[in-house]
Nucleic acid binder design. Structure first.
Length: 614
DNA sequence: CTAGGGTTAG
């Protein structure tokens, strides 16, 4: 078939008035159809659209079919505006056309809501009813906007229209419920679907990983292997689960599994390598993370960001910055979050300010809440509290609880006035209004405030805060540290005596303190007053019995000498902890890596629940 | 007569 039509779009005018016979018309449509197949951009498509308009009868089924194709092509060229114009010009739109447009919207970042609106319009108009292709597209759009209530409506329609057994539709439902954090609904769909594909398993495993059910995710992964070979998507989730558990042995196992059981394509995949880097960083093995990173022939932005963040969170600020300097692609806002974290962990206030300015000036990146959060945290932490407050006030967006808490934290440490601390605590508590999601910053505010009162000897106020916590049902989130020994994770809370080897652990703690004293370091943390600021009957333990120290002590007695000790904390690693850790590591000539585990859950209203930004 | 599902870091 020649391409001449495209070069001379106006040359063969066939007026509709010439009443083509059925067979001629069939040929004509066939011809346009084959020309459409050769279309490679919008301008060619527009010519063919114009030609179709001029040379065909609009109501013929064959013509409608052509418009369907045109609509589909328009969408594939991502010109959704034009797709809408084509769509609006057609009278009797088929399900195919509705589906195609809904899909185009679902794929367009700025039109996710429109996809759902279109679906409603489709039901309302009734010119064609939804079919099994409609629902996966709508569900995808719902998942993207975390539209749980919309998704539930669609779920009802699915059942009503009799597509409750369709694999694609059910996969869409699992994905939707998973994205919205509704694990039980996702699970229900998964358990009840009559037939499962690889995607069903992957979506379900992904849903578990998203809510932090890492153990269950890995269990499901093993179960899956009875019927399917894992692919790249599966392994991505598996690696996230290992990272979430912070288990280096599981992570290493997953890496080996990947090399042994997945085809080269999957194992070589940049995305998988990025997951490996992230997993090794989160499991405390920077060495392996670097090895994977070095071995990559191709690196994308995520690879660089993962590596920089790895250095940053391990307190290796200089290497993070070196890595940034070697970066050959344009950094994004995540890169700068990583750099700011690197500066924060090393107390490099001025360097941090430089990066902040560089981001805005040289790269034109708008600072987000997270960037302000980082910089305010360390400006305040370095004692420049009024400057930090000024930054909070001049931020273009509303500060969240995490930012206020950084300020309160600094006030607490730097001995700011009780009035100022009270004011800031009030702001934190205000952010809770209308926000149901749990955020440890709220409980943190109460705990910090009670500490402010305690250090000012305002014991009455300490009592008031404690009472408030009870009244508001706020529980202090206990600090918890874990260490993995021979593939088993041991967890410790502050003052914990439940471990079978408690006696040896506490003896080891004495040894640690003796050694520290012998080098002239009197751990002032052990002299911190016991403040009972909790409302659940538990004691507020002095730093001496903090969970990470118990975990380190256990590590020292369980591991061969000089083996790196990797500790995980559920809350953010604080600078005090770094200080003590550094000393212990020096005295015992052992590398101690303390990593914080962060869980992020994003909600539709833009809030997030997490212990902190890092 | 057409088509469809599952990833990006803090």
């Amino acid at each position: 078939m020649s391409n001449s039509l495209l070069l001379h779009p106006l040359s063969p005018p066939v007026p509709p008035a010439s009443s083509p016979s059925a067979s001629v018309s069939g040929n004509h449509h066939q011809r346009i159809l084959s020309l459409l197949k050769t279309c490679s951009d919008m301008s060619q498509l527009k010519q063919l659209h114009a030609f179709t308009l001029r040379t065909t009868y609009p109501d013929e089924p064959a013509t409608l079919f052509l418009y369907g194709r045109i609509l589909q092509l328009t969408s594939s060229f991502s010109d959704v505006n034009y797709a809408f114009r084509v769509f609006d010009s057609i009278q009797n739109r088929s399900s195919f056309m509705w589906n195609t447009l809904i899909r185009a919207c679902a794929h367009d970042v700025s039109r996710k809501e429109e996809a759902f609106m279109l679906y409603l319009k489709m039901l309302e108009r009734g010119e064609s009813s939804p079919d099994k292709h409609t629902f996966p597209f709508v569900l995808k759009a719902c998942a993207y906007i975390f539209g749980l209530s919309e998704g539930k409506q669609v779920h009802c329609q699915v059942v009503k229209h009799g597509f409750g057994g369709d694999v694609y539709v059910n996969n869409g439902l699992i994905h939707l419920y998973g994205s919205c954090g509704c694990l039980d609904l996702a699970r229900k769909v998964f358990d009840e679907m009559p037939e499962r594909s690889l995607v069903s398993w992957n979506s379900m495993i992904d849903a578990l990983v998203r809510v932090g059910e890492y153990d269950s995710a890995l269990q499901l992964f093993r179960k899956m292997q009875e019927s399917f070979e894992p692919d790249g998507y599966t392994m991505q989730s598996v690696l996230s689960a290992c990272a979430g558990l912070g288990s280096l042995s599981l992570g290493t196992w997953a890496h080996a599994f990947l090399l042994r059981n997945c085809d080269v394509d999957v194992a070589m995949n940049v995305l998988i390598k990025n997951s490996l880097i992230e997993m090794y960083c989160k499991c405390g093995s920077l060495r392996m993370a670097e090895q994977v990173f070095q071995g990559m022939q191709k690196r994308d932005l995520a690879s660089w960001n993962a590596m920089i963040l790895g250095f940053a969170t391990h307190g290796r600020g200089e290497e993070a910055m070196d890595c940034f300097d070697r970066m050959v692609i344009k950094p994004n806002s995540v890169t700068f979050v990583a750099l700011l974290i690197a500066c924060n962990h090393r107390g490099m206030v001025n360097k941090g300010r430089q990066y902040f300015d560089m981001m805005v000036r040289d790269y034109g990146i708008e600072p987000a809440l997270e960037h302000y959060g980082c910089i305010i945290d360390f400006v305040a932490g370095a004692g420049y509290i009024s400057e930090a407050i000024h930054m909070v006030m001049s931020m273009p967006m509303k500060p969240d609880a995490v930012i206020w808490r950084s300020l309160l934290d600094a006030c607490c440490k730097k001995g700011a006035s009780v009035e100022l601390s009270e004011e800031i605590a009030r702001r934190i508590i205000e952010t809770r209004e209308g926000n149901q999601s749990f955020n440890s910053s709220y409980s943190g505010a109460y705990v910090l405030l009670s500490r402010v009162y305690a250090s000012a000897s305002q014991w009455n106020d300490v009592g008031i805060v404690r009472k408030l916590m009870t009244e508001h049902g706020i529980r202090k989130q206990p600090g918890c540290s874990s260490i993995e020994i021979n593939g088993v994770s041991h967890e410790f809370f502050a003052g914990d005596t439940s471990h079978p080897q408690t006696k040896q652990i506490y003896q080891q703690l004495e040894v640690i303190d003796d050694r520290l004293r012998s080098i002239g370091y009197l751990p002032d943390c052990s002299q911190a007053p016991l403040v009972d600021a909790t409302n659940d009957g538990s004691k507020e333990y002095s730093l001496k019995l903090h969970s990470e120290r118990l975990a380190i002590a256990f590590g020292l007695i369980s591991l061969p000498p000089q083996t790196p000790i990797r500790i995980f904390k559920n809350l953010r690693v604080c600078s005090d902890c770094h200080e003590v850790t550094k000393l212990i590591s020096k005295v015992f000539n052992t590398e101690i890596i303390v990593r914080d585990r962060v869980r992020f859950h994003h909600f539709k209203d833009g809030s997030c629940s997490c212990s902190d930004y890092w």
